[in-house]
Design a protein around this nucleic acid. Sequence first.
DNA 1: ATTCTCACA
DNA 2: TGTGAGGA
Length: 126
Amino acid sequence: MRIGRMAALSGASPRSLRHYEDVGLLRPARSPSGQRVYEAADVDRVITIQHLLAGGLGTAVVKDLLPCLDAPAHERTGHLQDRLREEVERLEGRRRELARQVAVLGDLLAEQPPPGARGGPGRPVA
DNA sequence: ATTCTCACA
DNA sequence: TGTGAGGA
């Protein structure tokens, strides 16, 4: 199938599909005229890639996990699981850091006097 | 009508 | 990642 159909079936825009190829996530064949030719079996792969990307993984990480996604379920090394756990830990750490920052900014905001008529909001104070 | 590459206020 | 140009 060509890029248009893959886009429709996977939900990834043609733009994204070309991008995935640029970063090495996909290697569709080419027709003699230069058009990308995708295998029907790649639809799942593209969908999985989108899930991983949506989960906040970088393209480098996703690229590293591709062999796991291609390998038959019975001969997986657990690398995928390890990597996902690693990412979850990293994101949870970030979540805690963000919560801390939200708390700090929240406190600062609470200390601010209500916006008055003069010297309204938006004016940087010295 | 589709897709391709390249480039960007 | 979107958008548009210019060509096949």
